[in-house]
Design a binder for these strands. Structure first.
Length: 121
DNA sequence: TCCATGACGAGAT
DNA sequence: GATCTCGCCATGG
């Protein structure tokens, strides 16, 4: 982090970072969402990449953030390299009832959870 | 300041 | 579908 930390920056009325964490925490077990969906829900449809950047700090958040439920737009577990082990993300999902094959969520479109729809926009 | 990089996405071919 | 390219925003050298 730098002097202008995102986590404690109170300048913004509601941190984009905190918003991301909140949305991710609301993803129900057995469901997954995408970086782009979160970005869109927060009013920054072109900032999916920023959401991914925020996730770099997800693992140190309290309470815990279920980062394993966030994948890219086609259901690929692109963030698994940031977990303790390469299989941690997949195992966590499997434990919640989300099957993963070749780093890809099985039946992704059916398990997709869109905050803009589920939480209302 | 400029440039490369990154848990991304959408559109074009 | 598979690839490529470009736009996105923040960070670090």
């Amino acid at each position: 982090m730098s002097k202008r930390t995102l986590i404690n920056d109170a300048v913004q009325e509601r941190d984009f970072f905190q918003d991301v964490m909140d949305v991710v925490r609301q993803v129900p077990r057995g469901r997954v969402t995408s970086y782009g969906a979160i970005a869109k829900y927060l009013g920054a449809p072109r900032s999916a990449r920023l959401v991914g950047w925020c996730m770099n700090n997800a693992h140190v958040q309290r309470p815990h953030v279920p980062a394993q439920r966030v994948v890219n737009s086609i259901g690929l577990l692109t963030g698994k390299h940031h977990f303790a082990t390469l299989t941690a993300m997949q195992e966590l999902l499997a434990k919640e009832g989300v099957k993963v094959k070749d780093d890809q969520v099985v039946d992704f479109r059916n398990k997709f959870w869109d905050p803009a729809v589920e939480l209302g926009l």
